[in-house]
């Protein structure tokens, strides 16, 4: 009796187990597949590796020539353009604004200062909490739109990754090189802009290292607040770095959707007391 009662359970459990293992296997395969699908993009992946060194010159020649096109052509139609044009992060922080220079006893020019002001702030994203009644409506819309937009971008990105096999490798290489230069450019723009606002007076006399994570909207605005992954041990220092990031909004990000995808989630490493 006992046996009989236990058996069906065991069978059921066994089935479930098989099923779950199947799912796991599927996921594994899927994820591996995903990676194997990438080779045509190898050049891009390589670029990533080169990024952490911020001052690295744009690698004009991708050292990794895209591998022989894998036989797996997915003749995808050209990527559907995401209809809502990602709002351009208009301010290319090149224009130097002299206005603030006087007030700041630093020799360093704070080039962003001007840029920030004219920026027509998208209706404040954070207002939700505030009881301020005026503009909850457009703001919500905005948010929805944004989410949609991001979803589309994500979808787009995947396609972009899956698809380029068909293209001629030479074209890909050139494109990848251009992309590399572009990514490098924005990495250094972001680094420079945030650096302007990092206050080294608040980080003690040691050599603190901090690491924060942010997520960006296509406009270069930070979603929510930065997440502290590794603190300096001095809360005033941690907070000042966090403020420096927030004050640097909007961060310069590439307007091209596929490139922006790289910048959506950023890890920022700070060494405020080094030079």
């Amino acid at each position: 009796m006992n046996r009989k009662r236990e058996n069906p359970q065991a069978v059921k459990a066994g089935l479930l187990s098989v099923l779950v293992h199947g799912i796991l296997l599927a996921i594994l395969v899927f994820s591996f597949d995903w990676k194997t699908v990438q080779p045509a993009n190898v050049a891009q992946v390589e670029l990533w590796d080169s990024l952490p060194a911020p001052q690295v010159k744009p690698q004009l020649k991708p050292e990794l020539k895209p591998e022989p096109p894998k036989p797996e052509p997915k003749p995808e139609p050209p990527k559907p353009e995401p209809k809502p044009e990602p709002p351009k992060p208009e301010p290319k922080p090149e224009p130097k604004a002299e206005i603030q220079v006087k007030k700041e006893p630093v020799k360093e020019k704070p080039p962003e200062k001007k840029v920030e002001k004219p920026k027509p702030k998208p209706p404040e994203k954070k207002v939700e909490k505030k009881p301020e009644p005026p503009k909850p409506e457009p703001e919500k819309l905005n948010k929805q739109k944004l989410e949609e937009l991001q979803k589309m971008l994500a979808a787009e990105e995947m396609k972009v990754q899956d698809q380029p096999k068909s293209a001629a490798p030479a074209v890909n290489a050139a494109e990848a090189a251009a992309n590399a230069a572009e990514v490098d450019k924005y990495v250094s723009l972001i680094s420079r802009k945030i650096r302007q606002n990092v206050n080294r007076q608040l980080c003690g006399t040691g050599k603190p290292e901090l690491e924060l994570e942010i997520s960006l909207m296509p406009t270069g605005e930070v979603i929510g607040t930065p997440k502290l992954l590794k603190g300096s041990g001095l809360s005033a220092c941690d907070e000042s770095v966090e403020r420096a990031i927030l004050q640097s909004q909007p961060l310069p990000v590439p307007p091209q959707a596929d490139l922006f995808a790289r910048f959506r989630d950023l890890r920022l490493k700070f060494r405020p007391n080094d030079n």
Binding site: V106, R195, N197, V198, N199, L266, L268, K269, F270, R271
Partner: peptide
């Protein structure tokens, strides 16, 4: 995630 390093600081 893409990693960006920010070395030093210009604000006082």
């Amino acid at each position: 995630a893409l990693t960006i390093e920010i070395v030093g600081g210009a604000a006082q």
